[in-house]
Nucleic acid binder design. Structure first.
Length: 365
DNA sequence: AAAACGTGGTA
DNA sequence: TTACCAAGTTT
């Protein structure tokens, strides 16, 4: 492979085909950092709206470092992998307290920040500071698995190391950030799962194209099995307020809010499950008086069917005891807007908000 | 090394 | 409908 020629072909294509993205206007380190964290495991089209809202609310490291986690999570609501947001808050505090509020320029300092791994450290140092560091993400792995016709898995340490070494031989010192972004852009627009090889600017270098194995690359590990689970969730309404609780730090969706509920056990009806869960989680005796909706959603390796019920106190009202949550309480419907919910729970809130029958129910007894 | 961590879109 | 995928990191 002729290094200079490869880079020239690739960068010419990138200059002509790159998408206009908000963080590409001025590659300032904070903006690059935010965009790179948001883009992890997430399609770029979904990132843009979150990015704009985030930069308006947290325009620089200092404003982020001063923020409450609650506010940070609210701005991440719906993006998933919420540890990314919590780690950004932690990292901002490190930058303010340990680097005088200036984004560190040294690779090792950047790599040491919470939530920044090899890929993101390489992306920030190359894009924001022009340093010739590889930024090897899934796009880069896919592109080079095809260019090199790699027969080993690209997800293992060996495959990844091989790609990283190859990038180091190709990355130009004068446009390191553009080179890394160009490979990723190629992987996102052309060298996709079903690639458009006719459009590829570096097709002449592609060994798997020559070998006819493009669709067999990259070699990926066997996929994980999806677990199907059934849940019951109860919206307890009392004096116009709804009971919600904040999830514990060591649980799934730490720090996010939800309506109490849980898994439906064998032989249980959804109604029985929600009565049991309310007793276990908040020590309240409730009646599921009406089915609201069944919400189906996915998270990590689970496929969830969530049966949602409107609930009332079964007997005399009493104070909840939060056995499974960090805190909680009865909130006004309008107040739900300021809390971050997992996607499935947020869909339940939105359904109730848009369903006129709940206007009255929310203000009942 | 492998599993956990979210979500919505696509084939 | 199931399965995979999309700018990974942490434990």
């Amino acid at each position: 492979m002729i290094e200079a020629e490869f880079s020239r072909h690739l960068l010419e294509w990138y200059d002509a085909n790159r998408r206009e993205l908000p963080w590409r206007k001025t590659p300032e380190p904070y903006a690059v950092w935010v965009s790179e964290i948001m883009a992890q495991q997430t399609q770029i089209d979904r990132v843009v709206g979150y990015y704009d809202r985030w930069m308006k609310r947290f325009p620089d490291v200092n404003s982020l470092a001063c923020a409450h986690e609650e506010d940070v999570l609210k701005h991440w609501e719906g993006l998933g992998y919420y540890s990314r947001a919590r780690n950004m808050l932690k990292a901002a505090i490190v930058i303010v307290q340990g680097h005088g509020g200036e984004f560190p320029t040294d690779y090792a300092d950047i790599r040491g920040l919470p939530g920044i791994g090899e890929y993101t450290a390489g992306a920030i140092t190359s894009i924001a500071f022009g340093q010739p560091e590889p930024a090897v993400d899934a796009n880069v792995l896919r592109v080079f698995a095809r260019l090199l016709n790699m027969e080993e898995s690209v997800r293992g340490a060996k495959g990844r190391s091989r790609v990283e070494k190859q990038v180091r031989t190709l990355i130009p010192t004068d446009r390191a950030g553009d080179f890394n972004q160009a490979i990723m852009e190629l992987g996102a627009l052309v060298c996709i799962k079903n690639p458009d090889c006719e459009q590829c600017p570096v097709l002449v270098y592609c060994k798997s194209y020559g070998a006819g194995t493009v669709l067999q690359r990259p070699v990926l590990p066997a996929p994980k099995k999806i677990m199907r689970i059934n849940m019951a969730t109860g919206v307890l309404v009392h004096e116009g307020r709804l009971l919600i609780q904040k999830r514990k730090a060591d649980d799934v969706w730490p720090g996010l809010w939800e309506f109490p509920g849980g898994g439906i056990e064998d032989g249980e009806t959804p109604e029985q499950a929600i009565i049991r869960e309310y007793m276990e989680e908040v020590e309240l005796a409730i009646d599921p008086v009406e089915k609201i909706i069944t919400i189906v959603y996915n998270y990590t390796r689970y496929h969830v069917t969530m049966h949602c019920f409107l609930c009332r106190f079964a007997e005399e009202p009493s104070e909840p005891v939060f056995n499974e949550a960090a805190e909680g309480g009865f909130m006004l419907p309008a107040e739900l807007e300021s809390y971050a919910f997992p996607a499935g729970q947020r869909r339940l809130v939105e359904f109730m908000k848009n369903d006129r029958s709940f206007d009255a129910l929310f203000s009942d007894v």
